[in-house]
Computed example of a mutant assay.
Amino acid sequence: MPTYTEKLMKLMKFIQQKNPDAPIFLFGNYNPLYVYLANRQDLNADVKIYNGINANIAASDSQVYYVSTFKTLTYGQYQTRAARQQLVKESEQANRGSLNNKMVQDTLNGKSDKELNAYITTLDHYHPNNKGYDKMSKLLVKRMAEKESEWLVK
């Protein structure tokens, strides 16, 4: 965490040196494995720790705005509590929380052309697909509109 924090702060300073007036919209992290390991809340907890670092860095700088992607991209199409509870139940039966099971291993090793999360690409099972980037764009536009009076120079 200290290294992550240091490098992120260094990146923010670099951007601000290049353009001191530029607003920076910092996207948060998400858990691309959630749909496969929904019963492993420790993975989400770890992602949330790093998102806390992102949010704190944004809060400490008037030119940086945090954009949370956690709920949208982590949960994908499983946005309701009931849908996530069902996914947890299925995960418990399928993998018992282990990364060492065939479904997860095949996915992580690129042997699966299926992706359980509708917002993650099948190319690497990590990055957003077009739907995921559309969701991110909407989150960004919403955050930009919320803070427009702070960053938009008129």
Rank of each mutant, 00 (worst) to 15 (best):
Y4A: 08
E90H: 04
I24E: 02
G76C: 12
M1G: 06
A59L: 08
L8A: 03
E6W: 08
R96L: 10
N51I: 10
L8Q: 04
S62G: 07
I15L: 12
L26H: 07
G110H: 14
L140F: 08
N101S: 07
R40A: 15
A59P: 02
P32N: 10
R84Q: 14
G28E: 06
K18Y: 01
K10E: 14
T80N: 01
H125R: 10
K48R: 14
D124R: 05
V47M: 10
M12V: 15
K114R: 14
R143A: 04
E90G: 00
K10R: 11
E150I: 06
K147V: 05
T121Y: 01
G97D: 07
S91P: 06
I49K: 15
L73M: 14
E148M: 03
R40P: 11
E90C: 01
V153S: 04
L139S: 04
Q77P: 01
L8C: 03
Q85T: 01
F14Y: 11
Y126V: 10
S60A: 13
L26M: 15
P23Q: 04
Y66S: 02
A55R: 07
Q79R: 11
L43M: 14
N101G: 08
I53D: 04
G97T: 07
V141T: 05
T121W: 02
S98H: 11
T80H: 00
D42K: 13
T122I: 15
A145Q: 10
Q105D: 13
N31D: 15
N101L: 06
N95P: 09
L8R: 07
Q105P: 06
I120N: 10
S149R: 08
V141D: 07
P23E: 03
V47S: 05
Q63S: 12
I53N: 03
P23M: 04
Q105R: 15
Y78R: 09
N129P: 00
Q93Y: 00
M1W: 12
M136D: 02
L99D: 12
R40N: 15
T80A: 01
R143L: 01
L108H: 10
R81M: 09
P20E: 05
Y75K: 08
D61H: 10
A94D: 13
E150S: 11
N29M: 12
L87H: 02
N54K: 10
S137N: 07
N44Q: 12
T3E: 09
P23Y: 03
D21N: 13
V64N: 00
K147M: 04
N39W: 09
I24H: 01
Y36M: 15
P32K: 11
K7T: 09
Y66E: 01
K7D: 09
F25S: 01
G76D: 08
I15Q: 02
G52P: 08
D124A: 03
K131P: 00
F25T: 02
H127W: 02
D61W: 03
V67A: 01
K7Y: 09
E6A: 12
Y133V: 05
V67T: 01
V141H: 03
Q77A: 07
K18L: 04
L11W: 06
L11C: 06
S62W: 00
S137T: 08
N56W: 02
L8Y: 04
N130Y: 03
F14M: 11
N51P: 04
Y36C: 14
I49T: 11
